[in-house]
Computed example of a mutant assay.
Amino acid sequence: MAMDLLRRIAASPLPASFSSPDDIDKLRVLHAAGLLLAVFVADAASSRSTETHRAMVTAITEKGLQELRAIGEPDSQLRGVRSTGHLVSRLRELVERARGVSK
């Protein structure tokens, strides 16, 4: 089940890489549902180069965190999860620093 994979991702450090075809299929579902951010990579050396061979999850979205809470994942398990909200905050901080340096 895709939500089990989302739980597993929430419990592990990000970014996380996956190569199992079953995991990649589940990641595509979670990504399409807007629950996480992921990059899917095809092996250029493969004769079937359109087939995805690897995926990297970079963040769980706020929607993904809400879904995890809705299925009973305790907040204590989600505290360390890097969400898109964290990434946006970090980008804003870096932009403000860059502006201060360029003045």
Score class of each variant (00 low, 15 high):
26 K>A: 15
26 K>L: 10
34 G>Q: 05
33 A>M: 13
25 D>Q: 11
13 P>G: 13
21 P>Q: 04
36 L>K: 06
39 V>E: 14
37 L>I: 12
38 A>I: 04
53 H>L: 06
36 L>A: 12
26 K>W: 03
17 S>T: 12
36 L>W: 05
30 L>K: 04
45 A>E: 10
44 A>V: 10
32 A>C: 05
18 F>T: 00
15 P>A: 11
21 P>D: 02
55 A>P: 02
49 S>Y: 08
33 A>K: 13
28 R>E: 12
13 P>R: 07
13 P>I: 10
47 S>A: 15
38 A>K: 03
44 A>W: 03
41 V>L: 15
52 T>Y: 11
23 D>E: 14
52 T>D: 08
20 S>G: 10
48 R>F: 07
53 H>P: 00
56 M>P: 00
24 I>Y: 01
45 A>T: 06
16 A>M: 12
33 A>S: 14
53 H>F: 08
39 V>L: 13
16 A>D: 02
35 L>W: 05
43 D>W: 00
31 H>C: 13
53 H>T: 14
25 D>H: 04
15 P>V: 04
24 I>G: 01
24 I>H: 04
50 T>C: 06
50 T>A: 13
26 K>G: 04
42 A>D: 10
24 I>T: 01
51 E>R: 10
17 S>V: 11
23 D>C: 10
35 L>R: 05
40 F>M: 03
43 D>E: 15
32 A>H: 08
17 S>L: 12
40 F>G: 01
16 A>S: 15
52 T>F: 13
24 I>L: 09
48 R>I: 07
33 A>I: 00
36 L>C: 14
43 D>L: 11
17 S>W: 07
18 F>W: 00
30 L>F: 09
27 L>P: 07
49 S>M: 09
30 L>D: 08
40 F>Y: 03
45 A>K: 06
14 L>E: 06
45 A>Y: 01
21 P>W: 01
56 M>W: 04
33 A>G: 06
26 K>I: 03
15 P>R: 01
35 L>P: 03
53 H>E: 09
27 L>M: 07
27 L>C: 11
29 V>N: 09
12 S>Q: 13
35 L>V: 10
28 R>P: 02
20 S>Q: 09
23 D>V: 00
31 H>V: 03
20 S>M: 05
40 F>D: 00
52 T>C: 11
40 F>S: 02
48 R>K: 14
17 S>D: 13
42 A>V: 07
16 A>Q: 10
46 S>G: 10
31 H>D: 15
34 G>R: 02
18 F>A: 06
43 D>H: 08
20 S>H: 08
28 R>Q: 14
41 V>G: 09
17 S>Y: 07
37 L>D: 14
29 V>P: 04
12 S>P: 01
14 L>V: 07
49 S>D: 10
35 L>E: 12
15 P>W: 00
28 R>M: 13
53 H>G: 15
28 R>V: 07
35 L>D: 11
15 P>H: 02
27 L>G: 08
13 P>S: 14
38 A>V: 04
53 H>N: 12
36 L>E: 05
51 E>L: 13
52 T>E: 06
42 A>H: 09
13 P>Q: 08
38 A>T: 03
37 L>G: 15
55 A>H: 03
45 A>G: 15
